[in-house]
Simulated scan of single mutants.
Amino acid sequence: MFVNDCLNINEKGHLTIGGCDTVELAKEYGTPLYVLDENTIRTTCRSYVKSFKKFYNGNGMPLYASKALSCKELCRIANEEHLGLDVVSGGEIYTAQQAGFPMEKTHFHGNNKTAAEIEFALNAGVGTFVVDN
């Protein structure tokens, strides 16, 4: 019925994410509320890492695109699951730093960067700069 196994309907007829009742979560935390299933995220990360090992002989590193959702918890999970981090702004670099993400596994990507953002990235120790136009 759902596109992902972490989604379900409980006995109350409420949507659940990772077994958590979304109606109860909304009552407790209010809305809007982002709800992510850590097990699903980790399973997906492991799938990418496994694919790199299998098809690329372990060469390369999958990157989490933090522009999708940049928060400290996702940075922590990405690091624990052996992913690098693709960042596109000074704010995403700052978030990664605050999460303790290893800057050498960070790729600063995209065009139209200000001199201040580039300097911030250099001072932060970002490992790779992806230059395009």
Rank of each mutant, 00 (worst) to 15 (best):
Gly100His: 11
Thr40Met: 11
Lys54Cys: 01
Glu11Arg: 01
Lys105Gly: 04
Tyr94Met: 03
Leu7Thr: 06
Ser89Tyr: 01
Asn111Gln: 13
Ile77His: 09
Ile17Ala: 04
Cys6Trp: 09
Phe52Met: 10
Val131Thr: 08
Cys45Lys: 02
Ser89Trp: 03
Tyr94Ile: 02
Gln98Tyr: 01
Glu81Leu: 04
Ser51Lys: 14
His14Gly: 00
Lys12Pro: 00
Ile41Arg: 02
Phe55Arg: 12
His82Glu: 12
Ile77Ser: 03
Pro62Val: 00
Glu80Tyr: 08
Pro62Gly: 00
Ile17Gly: 04
Phe108Ile: 01
Ser47Gln: 13
Phe55His: 15
Glu117Asn: 13
Glu81Val: 03
Ala99His: 11
Ala26Glu: 06
Pro102Ser: 07
His109Ala: 09
Met61Asn: 13
Phe120Lys: 10
Met61Ser: 11
Val23Ile: 05
Glu104Leu: 02
Cys45His: 14
Tyr64Ser: 05
Asp86Leu: 03
Ile93Lys: 10
Gly84Thr: 02
Met61Ile: 12
Ser66Asn: 07
Tyr29Ser: 03
Phe55Trp: 13
Asn133Lys: 06
Glu80Gly: 11
Ala121His: 05
Glu81Lys: 08
Lys67Gly: 01
Lys113Trp: 03
Val130Glu: 07
Lys12Gly: 00
Phe129Ala: 12
Thr128Gly: 07
Thr43Ser: 13
